[in-house]
């Protein structure tokens, strides 16, 4: 019995070390990047790339994120509503379900290849912001669908039943009762989707980015600059030393972590506030 307890202690310690390693990995990465804080000056954020700043890259990245969230958000939400509220049990629903899982698993570089042949060439969008939106939508969609599905499922059935009993049609019950109750979860899923694609490089590599533009794009059909793309090309194609692109890496890291942390805190906070989830 005593031997069993000692064995348990040893094993649990090893497991604890494994967990500590994961946490340490994040801490190390954050520490390395934050050590570069001194290399960027605040004025670089608003200075054009032509003068050594980051302005167009930051705005370009935000353009990409807002646009693809604007497409993937509504489509993903409607898809989630269908899957939770309307989908009959059957083969079609199973196939849709598997298609969503598979879409989530397609490597981003393959999504980039598809985006190039389909959006850029077949649809004639060329290397453009719009093509980037559509390509990133493909990556964001499964995350938004799964997250929203989860959020809608968590709203107690009795809420909707009360509305139905009062004579509301189902769609009315969903839009005025279920969705407001699920809103925090839905917003979380969209934020997570944004965090997932904010630093995506492979998918926008051939679909929407160039190294330098003259100012911001004037229409969605123009190519843009993005942080991730610039970081990648400067290191891989132009062979710049990692130390010289510290600023871009740090800004990109902060944008991604802000979105992801916002999503996670939002979720934890609302789980505590929504009494029916306890």
């Amino acid at each position: 019995m005593k031997a069993a307890r000692i064995k348990e202690k040893i094993i649990f310690t090893i497991f604890g070390l494994a967990t500590a390693l994961c946490v340490a990995a994040f801490a190390t990465i954050a520490a390395i990047l934050l050590s570069g804080l001194g290399t960027i000056k605040l004025e670089h954020l608003t200075k054009s790339a032509l003068q050594g700043g980051y302005f167009e890259m930051i705005i370009g990245t935000l353009y990409l994120l807002v646009g693809s969230a604007g497409i993937a958000g509504p489509i993903g939400l409607l898809a989630a509503i269908y899957l939770v509220e309307y989908a009959p049990r059957g083969r079609l629903t199973r196939v849709i379900d598997q298609a969503i899982n598979n879409l989530a698993g397609v490597p981003s570089i393959v999504i980039g290849l598809f985006g190039y042949t389909f959006f850029c060439r077949q649809l004639g969008l060329g290397i453009s912001l719009a093509a980037g939106w559509l390509t990133l939508t493909l990556m964001m969609l499964p995350i938004v669908i799964r997250g929203s599905e989860e959020a809608i499922k968590m709203v107690p059935k009795s809420f909707q039943e009360a509305a139905l009993a009062l004579g509301a049609p189902k769609w009315k019950a969903i839009t005025s009762i279920t969705l407001p109750a699920a809103a925090p979860g839905i917003i979380t899923s969209i934020l997570l989707g944004i965090a997932r694609v904010a630093g995506e490089t492979a998918a926008i590599l051939f679909t929407s980015c160039v190294l330098v533009t003259r100012g911001l794009p004037k229409s969605p059909l123009e190519p843009i600059m993005a942080l991730a793309f610039n970081l990648y090309v400067k290191i891989v194609a132009l062979g710049e030393a990692p130390e010289r692109v510290f600023g871009i890496a740090l800004i990109l890291f902060m944008i991604v972590v802000i979105f992801a942390a916002a999503a996670i805190t939002f979720r934890v906070y609302y789980r505590r506030r929504q009494l029916w989830l306890r």
Partner: peptide
């Protein structure tokens, strides 16, 4: 019967359509 039903169905099935499009275009190229 539900104004929300058809658009929701179309959005959900888009996952299948997108996956098929992806396969078709990659095979074509």
């Amino acid at each position: 019967a539900e104004p929300l039903g058809a658009p929701a169905f179309i959005c959900a099935s888009s996952a299948i359509i997108l996956l098929l499009l992806m396969l078709i275009f990659i095979v074509r190229e």
